[in-house]
């Protein structure tokens, strides 16, 4: 199965109570949806979701955003079950290390060790600090997520 079974915020919003009651600590249900995606919130953080009428929605959201998901420093979520170890992310990430100077087209190279390594057939993060999201002036790069053919990599921030 190719990728693209990720829940988008508006899609997710439809499963929430949509009352904007703020009991979860954020200003609106849509903000809560974003919180779920970035894994800062859990489905149970919404008290209304615990009511019986929302049981099916809660079960579904738990499947997507429940326990076990560990967001690493750069907002990266790795689904090890989906990873086939093709190594596309390793090389795509190598190829985006650098900054292009707009207008001139010159590339300022960045000589850093590889972010990823394939270990035992599954992607592993070796050097967080090499990720452009950790740079002095962070760049919200998404190349690895976009190139992952199975949807195993997700940048939730």
């Amino acid at each position: 199965m190719p990728k693209k079974d990720k829940m988008q915020p508006l899609q997710l919003y439809r499963y929430l109570p949509r009352s904007n009651c703020k009991k979860c600590g954020v200003p609106s249900c849509l903000a809560f949806a974003f919180g779920l995606i970035s894994r800062e919130k859990k489905p149970e953080d919404c008290p209304d979701m615990l009511k019986d009428e929302y049981r099916p929605s809660l079960d579904l959201l738990k499947e997507y955003f429940g326990e076990g998901a560990q967001v690493e420093k750069t907002g990266l979520l790795i689904d090890k079950d989906k990873c086939t170890g093709c190594g596309d992310c390793v090389i795509a990430c190598q190829k985006c290390q650098g900054t292009i100077m707009f207008g001139t087209g010159t590339i300022l190279p960045r000589d850093v060790p590889d972010v990823y390594k394939i270990v035992d057939g599954i992607v592993d993060v070796k050097h967080w600090e090499s990720c452009k999201r950790c740079a002095d002036r962070p760049e919200m790069c998404r190349v690895c997520e976009e190139r992952c053919p199975t949807g195993a990599l997700e940048l939730v921030k």
Binding site: T84, G85, C86, G87, K117, I118, V119, D120, G121
Partner: peptide, 15 residues
Amino acid sequence: RRVENACRKGSSSLY
């Protein structure tokens, strides 16, 4: 004990 660079198919065959 550890396989590096091989894909999932390759590392399973080695193990």
